Simulated assay, not measured.
Amino acid sequence: MPAPVLLPFGATPRKSDETYIRALEAAGLRVHVLRPGESPPPAFGGLVLAGGTDIEPARYGQPPHPANHPPEPARDALEADLIESAIAAGAPILAICRGMQMLAVARGGALVQHLPDVVGHSRHADAPPIDEKHRRAHTVVLAGPGRLHDLLGAGPIEVNSRHHQAVDPAQPGAGLRIVGRAEDGTVEALDWDIPNQLIAVQWHPEDIALGPPGPMRDQARALFEAFATAVREFAGA
């Protein structure tokens, strides 16, 4: 069996943590949760970067926006180290919401700190009831060639949404390219040229994968299954 995938979280457990674990386990993966101050195991099969609070803006050379949520620098540092280790090892990475933003920042990119300032609305920060986090918020168009385009097609695909920040399209990070955008131009997916190493999306497929049957759930599960396949291939390399 492949080594567990690493799943770093913040210091304080959140109810949403369990959703990531359930979605990964449903794809046949073992999960090793890490919190700031803990050391990763000597071997790991992949890295999952989950959602959470805003990243410390000093990491990308900006002062904080008044609308920002309090950062957790210790989590930022842990994830930056794990990203470096995963890239060096060639391990698969699944980056979700804040996780995609953290990946971009770790690669020298920057963020749009408050999307309403740029797109003129707050629909990306949808806050549905706890049992409806899977529901549609907007659509995303995927550009090819790339891993997501191969998995899901060009779209537009329907996604959920729960964020007020996004990757800055002018500074996505070294080696990263934008392969998905919302109707308003917000960056929704990233890729790079290392085969099978990265799935990075701004929406929350973990919620959709555990939601009701339909095309959205099928697409979300396809992402987790593709990541699980990459983890198994990495283990056999």
Results as ranks from 00 to 15, higher is better:
residue 56 E to T: 14
residue 21 I to L: 12
residue 83 I to L: 01
residue 179 V to N: 07
residue 110 A to K: 15
residue 74 A to M: 10
residue 148 L to M: 00
residue 42 P to A: 09
residue 20 Y to Q: 07
residue 44 F to Q: 01
residue 137 A to H: 00
residue 161 S to L: 04
residue 73 P to L: 11
residue 128 P to C: 11
residue 85 S to P: 01
residue 60 Y to Q: 10
residue 194 I to C: 06
residue 52 G to V: 06
residue 33 V to Y: 02
residue 156 P to F: 03
residue 166 A to C: 06
residue 99 G to L: 00
residue 167 V to N: 08
residue 129 P to G: 11
residue 79 E to W: 10
residue 114 H to F: 15
residue 103 L to G: 02
residue 30 R to F: 08
residue 207 D to A: 04
residue 36 P to W: 14
residue 141 V to W: 00
residue 138 H to E: 04
residue 129 P to T: 07
residue 11 A to T: 15
residue 180 G to E: 09
residue 91 A to F: 01
residue 39 S to T: 15
residue 48 V to P: 02
residue 48 V to Q: 05
residue 216 M to D: 11
residue 18 E to H: 08
residue 212 P to Q: 12
residue 225 E to I: 05
residue 56 E to H: 14
residue 107 R to V: 05
residue 74 A to W: 03
residue 99 G to P: 01
residue 89 A to W: 03
residue 222 A to S: 12
residue 94 L to Y: 06
residue 27 A to Q: 04
residue 231 V to P: 02
residue 156 P to W: 01
residue 20 Y to C: 03
residue 48 V to G: 05
residue 170 A to E: 14
residue 30 R to W: 09
residue 155 G to R: 03
residue 63 P to R: 14
residue 100 M to A: 09
residue 155 G to Q: 00
residue 217 R to I: 07
residue 171 Q to D: 14
residue 195 P to C: 07
residue 134 H to L: 02
residue 165 Q to K: 14
residue 34 L to S: 05
residue 95 A to D: 03
residue 150 D to P: 00
residue 143 A to M: 02
residue 169 P to R: 13
residue 180 G to N: 11
residue 11 A to S: 15
residue 64 P to L: 09
residue 168 D to P: 11
residue 30 R to K: 12
residue 201 V to L: 10
residue 197 Q to D: 04
residue 2 P to D: 11
residue 57 P to G: 11
residue 9 F to D: 04
residue 87 I to T: 13
residue 139 T to H: 01
residue 142 L to V: 05
residue 161 S to C: 11
residue 234 F to W: 10
residue 124 H to F: 08
residue 179 V to T: 13
residue 29 L to M: 07
residue 105 V to F: 06
residue 193 D to H: 10
residue 22 R to N: 15
residue 46 G to Y: 03
residue 75 R to K: 15
residue 162 R to D: 10
residue 162 R to N: 12
residue 210 L to G: 11
residue 220 A to F: 04
residue 35 R to P: 08
residue 43 A to F: 12
residue 94 L to G: 04
residue 14 R to A: 15
residue 120 G to F: 12
residue 195 P to Y: 05
residue 208 I to H: 01
residue 43 A to M: 07
residue 197 Q to V: 06
residue 132 E to G: 03
residue 151 L to P: 00
residue 6 L to C: 07
residue 173 G to R: 11
residue 203 W to K: 09
residue 100 M to D: 00
residue 54 D to W: 07
residue 100 M to W: 04
residue 152 L to G: 00
residue 153 G to F: 02
residue 171 Q to I: 08
residue 137 A to T: 03
residue 140 V to I: 02
residue 122 S to E: 13
residue 76 D to S: 11
residue 54 D to V: 09
residue 132 E to T: 10
residue 170 A to S: 14
residue 67 A to E: 11
residue 120 G to R: 12
residue 21 I to T: 15
residue 128 P to W: 10
residue 216 M to E: 11
residue 149 H to Y: 05
residue 219 Q to R: 15
residue 52 G to W: 05
residue 35 R to M: 07
residue 3 A to E: 14
residue 142 L to I: 13
residue 67 A to F: 05
residue 163 H to I: 12
residue 137 A to D: 03
residue 121 H to R: 14
residue 69 H to A: 12
residue 33 V to L: 05
residue 154 A to W: 00
residue 170 A to L: 15
residue 117 D to I: 06
residue 233 E to Q: 13
residue 138 H to K: 01
residue 196 N to Y: 06
residue 112 V to I: 15
residue 169 P to G: 13
residue 135 R to P: 00
residue 11 A to V: 14
residue 235 A to D: 13
residue 40 P to N: 08
residue 225 E to P: 02
residue 32 H to T: 06
residue 171 Q to G: 10
residue 159 V to T: 07
residue 39 S to H: 06
residue 147 R to T: 11
